[in-house]
Amino acid sequence: MSETVANNINEAKQYIVVNIGSERYGIDIQYVDNIVRMQRITRIPKAQDYFPGVINIRGEIIPVMSLRVRFGLEPDVITSATRILIIKIEPQAAVGIIVDEVKNVVSIDEEMIDRVSSNTDPEKTQYMNGVGKHEEGLVTLLNLQNVIVDKDAQDK
């Protein structure tokens, strides 16, 4: 009995489930630094279109990314449920991502994740790590590295 509990702790990861458009996405909780309400975004000229600008979080300037634009969906509609998740995939480099709504936190066992098969279209799957199943349904698990880092910009 105690052994199965230990297994669960070892293999299950916690994800924050968010709504973007009609889809649900899971974000690995270990990269989430903070969740803040929508606030005034300062536009950065000539930035990539999915970066609406920067925000000020307690004296730190943090770029904010629109996942909707990044995924080719229609632009964000700001509501009272809109949140910005502050993500840190590496120290000293935080990024905010705008989501329509933060639902809850779920634990998803490693076994319950379907990895994306390699023969699917990389254009569509580069931002996902897999699909996780839990009691309430399916969530797409984001590959934050690919979402945040602009490959084209890095190559330059």
């Binding site: 300062t42 000539k46 000020n56 300037i61």
Partner: peptide
């Protein structure tokens, strides 16, 4: 002077940002 981070690609016209007294950001 504060950095705007490395992810935003801004063709170098913006060298950074600063936070004004009211918390607003100026580039």
């Amino acid at each position: 002077i504060k950095s705007i981070g490395k992810y935003i690609n801004n063709s170098k016209m913006i060298s950074g940002a600063t936070i004004l007294g009211d918390g607003e950001i100026a580039l």
